[in-house]
Nucleic acid binder design. Structure first.
Lengths: 230, 230
DNA sequence: TTAAAAAGTTGAGCTAAATCAGTTTAAAAT
DNA sequence: ATTTTAAACTGATTTAGCTCAACTTTTTAA
């Protein structure tokens, strides 16, 4: 089970859509109570501390979910298309966003009115069960990331995020990363300079091939090992 | 909302019991499908990687929930009585415990058969809604702890855990801690020596009064400040 | 009630990784 | 096309916090 900790500095990979469980009528109910919004790269999708009047479904794009805190934020997860953002805000006694989210690339989201969502949970147990699944998968992912950021050293963390990007986000060994080195540093909770140094090490050792923002995983096994050992 | 990050190196403080939502019949159904077990201090309540055949309700005691990984574990949370352990294991496609739990003190738990629990979720939407609440509260707590361990320095982390113990676990400013310095180190993700040094600093500066395992919070405000600043 | 083991404590030295201060390159803006 | 700004990179320096190696106190076991 230790492989759980490899490559978990990552995202929730939506295997289940809770919306599948809705009746036709409920689907229409959702349609009536949602709006579609486009966010440009860098824009804030939701703001920590503001009223959570809606659940956010990321239809297309890539976003980061993070806790705001000067001098440095903590990225909780990166979220590709197909994910729900803001679910933990729906618990009773709380009506504010617990975190912020921002678009890494131009993104398309659907905002679903929160009481609509809550009502669906209360009246459709199967839907609720799916939501619980989504929440739990998410929790597991965050645990992996928690472990990664607290117990792995720099090389392990960078290896981890590279594997994550290749496996879970872009789903290919060669990808063009829409993040700056700075954003990569925020994501791995390290300094920009350290990110650059570690990437250079990997490049020099032939583990990756890197030209600017183009990355190619050359030695998957070795990166996995580095990620595991920390 | 920044006070969110103070004193969150902590536990889920169960405000809602999901079981309140059960019908009489469902309560009986649970009664038939649960067993009561006693765990001695130090004993493993559930083991990461083993089959999760049940949900664990901590009726009495104090436990840690942690990810196992040599050379050092990561404590996800400490769990006082009234908490459910093992909820994230109930998602589809997974039937193993994602983490271990161990008793800090002699503890009494109830094991509820997992399919019983799943059935309740599917057939009682209000129960499911409560479970979602519990999961979300838990998630928020973990986020706080995640932030604490990744972004705060040693003094901030120790201040945080002391406030947490006083406020959330023992609910008094003077308490006898059933943890060794070593366990405190594991909890704050620092070395035992560092824990001792920081505690000594706090003691010397009059922020706490400490004799062996007896702790007394003397300057709550200053500790809060240290916890906030990091 | 004494021995053994575990927990707690202290200081010295080391190291991983941050910060700082700069240079180079690339991307926007004029 | 040229200036401006931002991002990428490099080396030197600093430092927070760990490890190590002692020693003391407390707890447990014989």
């Amino acid at each position: 089970m230790n492989s759980n900790y490899t490559n978990t500095c990552t995202v929730y990979d939506s295997r289940f859509s809770c919306f599948e469980e809705l009746t036709e009528e409920q689907v229409k109910f959702v349609e009536r109570n949602k709006v579609k919004v486009l966010f440009k790269k860098g824009e804030t999708i939701c703001k920590q501390g503001s009223f959570a009047s809606h659940i956010i479904y990321l239809r297309e794009g890539l976003a980061k979910v993070y806790l705001e805190h000067s001098p440095r934020n903590l990225v909780l997860k990166i979220s590709p298309s197909g994910n729900l953002i803001g679910l933990p805000s729906i618990y009773d006694g709380n009506n504010i966003f617990l975190y912020s989210a921002a678009a890494y690339v131009d993104s398309e989201v659907e905002l679903i009115e929160i009481n609509t969502f809550k009502q669906l949970i209360r009246e459709n147990a199967k839907f609720a069960y799916r939501v619980i699944n989504v929440l739990n998968e998410n929790t597991v992912q965050i645990y992996g990331r928690f472990f990664c950021l607290t117990n792995k050293q720099l090389h392990g963390r960078v290896a981890d995020i590279l594997l994550c990007l290749a496996n879970r986000i872009f789903k290919t060994n060669e990808f063009n990363l829409p993040l700056t080195r700075n954003e990569l540093a925020e994501l791995t909770n390290m300094s920009t300079e350290s990110v650059i140094r570690v990437l250079k090490d990997f490049n020099d050792d032939g583990l990756i091939e890197m030209t600017g923002k183009t990355f190619k995983i050359k030695n998957y096994d070795m990166l996995s090992k580095i990620s595991e050992v920390g």
